[in-house]
Design a protein around this nucleic acid. Structure first.
Lengths: 342, 342
DNA sequence: ATGAAAGCGCTAACAC
DNA sequence: GTGTTAGCGCTTTCAT
């Protein structure tokens, strides 16, 4: 009875047992080699490695995860990758997670699925992850009513999630205050605000603190204008605001809308910052090359991602307390702001 | 020797068996409920669901994956999320994968790990994925020499990977040709090119076809200038080119460099497109709001992502052939190009 | 330094 | 409609 090598069982991945057989050792030895353990005779190890290569073995991570009870993976729940902020945060998360040898799984959320607590559990509960970072617009989190599986560590970014989770939040309030005060200190009085959508937690915080800063300065804030974060919406508001003569300063809810605004003002022949000053929020990589270079509020997305992962991994390792981390923002003064013309 | 079930084992997730015990049924029945199978008495199902909730049960996906031999996950290997293109592609990939009920795992590659074919296997071989999309700059793929685990379906994006894999590629060549011909047709003769880094496959393709188009038109191409995709590098070249009087048209390797170029030209007081025409590549979402709005080549990242996933999933389901998919590019004419001044 | 046995949590196959 | 049995591929004792 020869168990010689001509099986032609092409489609199946070889298992540890197959390697063991091929190398003439037990599968434990293969396991030890695969995990780089010490107590293996160099010659044996050599033989095993050769067998692995010959067979094209690769460890089955499902089995491994099952056995070890850890996936070495964290999930990120987000609606869209389309915004600069989400992208940057995700990038930081992936980088930081990799440092700890964790991979990152995207858990895209189609809104339909969300509230639906049907008989079958939703994909989140099945996800092969040790913890989850949620980058949601806050109100959506509320609406969702989606019960996170108990025991799954969670960190929430930029949300009003309250005390139930650890929250990492950019200091929107202070950013909006800085932006508004900068314009005020330049001598502008009536500062207009083009806010992000009402559905956004961040947008509402920025708007609230713009208003508050105005009121604190004893100035009646002009009516808020709502955009949707897009360059186009900024453009539309720019076309309207640019035609009024009581507009000397605009604080846009993000850089993209600021860009759209400036384009409209250019088209209308209004000079930025000569006629009208503009401040953004985010500090896109390109913002310093806009024309004029954009004065804006820098968000430290890298730090947000880092904090999120560090706190999440602490939880994965057993920490139970929730924290609230506030990441500071910073005013970057460039060429789009100046004192109002006399 | 107490192998009794020590209670108060707080930290452990409840298993199917626990739920079964709690509900007074077999774990098989729990499994059926968990998977939404039909043959379960409504009352039993009810009871099981209640037990699940009471215990906070969530299925262990490692066990599930082990049993089923599928992870329902695909991996994406990329160096950085920082570029618009990678991010857009990733977004499309995630969206398309979600439609097929697959999640996406980011496999960040730290260069150090890469070539290293040490005894221990690299993270890719352990990744809990059914297939892999690679978004690499081509030469890196070459250098890497990293042998993909045999049997793991692979699709490569924008690379010269050859016939070993299915490749989804944007039609860089045609894009570069369109950009150059557009400028030519406007009446420009000597068209300068600010290319991406030499290490980039895409950059080299664009460069090659810009040159070829010039040669075909019987014009000696001016020396190539290399940037690194960044706005800053565009700015630097802009400051130099803008001071020469033999520059009337520049084709930038991407939109960000084009933006930097235009900023430099503004600062130098050169009018775009009056004095100098500029064409980009990518069509960033903001490109139409640059000042002036940027003429550029649109890449269809969404289609690239879609094709990648569709082809990959076909392979996961057993398809063996490799394909080569070319996604077309398109010239978008906006305000940054015009005929040269006489 | 190596091997044997047990079992992680789940589901497919087959009872009943 | 429900339970029993077996085993996916791996790692953790414990022996040798």
């Amino acid at each position: 009875m020869t168990s010689s090598d001509a099986p032609a069982r092409r489609s199946k991945q070889p298992s540890m047992g197959d390697v063991a057989r091929h190398a003439g050792v037990s599968s434990q030895t293969v396991s030890r080699v695969s995990n780089g353990h010490a107590n293996v005779d160099p010659l044996t190890r050599q033989r095993v490695v050769e067998s692995m290569e010959a067979l094209g073995y690769r460890p089955n991570s499902a089995a491994r995860a099952l056995r070890r009870g850890k996936f070495k993976a964290i999930g990120v729940i987000m609606f869209t990758l389309r915004t600069f902020g989400n992208m940057s945060t995700l990038n930081a998360i992936a980088t930081e997670a990799a440092r700890a040898d964790y991979s990152v799984t995207l858990l895209p959320v189609r809104e339909a699925t969300l509230g639906q607590v049907s008989g079958a559990y939703n994909r989140l509960s099945e996800a092969a992850v040790d913890g989850v970072v949620i980058i949601f617009e806050a109100h959506l989190l509320d609406e969702a009513e989606f019960t996170l599986p108990p025991g799954l560590p969670v960190v929430v970014i930029d949300s009003n999630a309250g005390d139930a989770y650890t929250v990492v939040d950019t200091d929107q309030a202070d950013g909006a205050r800085q932006a508004t005060e900068h314009l005020l200190s330049l001598g502008h009085r009536k500062i207009w605000h083009v806010a992000g959508p009402e559905s956004s937690f961040s947008a509402m915080r920025r708007m609230e603190y713009w208003r508050r800063t105005m009121v604190d300065a004893g100035i009646e804030p002009p009516p808020v204008r709502y955009g949707d974060w897009s360059t186009e919406s900024g453009y539309r508001h720019g076309m309207e605001l640019g035609q009024r003569d009581d507009v000397t300063a605009i604080f846009a809810g993000n850089d993209q809308m600021a860009l759209g605004l400036m384009r409209a003002l250019h088209e209308l022949g209004r000079d930025v910052p000569g006629d009208i000053s503009v401040v953004g929020f985010d500090d896109l990589e390109e913002a310093h090359s806009f024309w004029p270079p954009l004065t804006t509020i820098r968000q430290d997305f890298g730090e947000v991602g880092r904090q999120a992962i560090q706190n999440l991994l602490a939880k994965v390792d057993g920490e139970r307390d929730n924290h609230k981390i506030i990441v500071p923002t910073r005013l970057i003064v460039r060429g789009s702001t100046a004192a109002p013309r006399e």
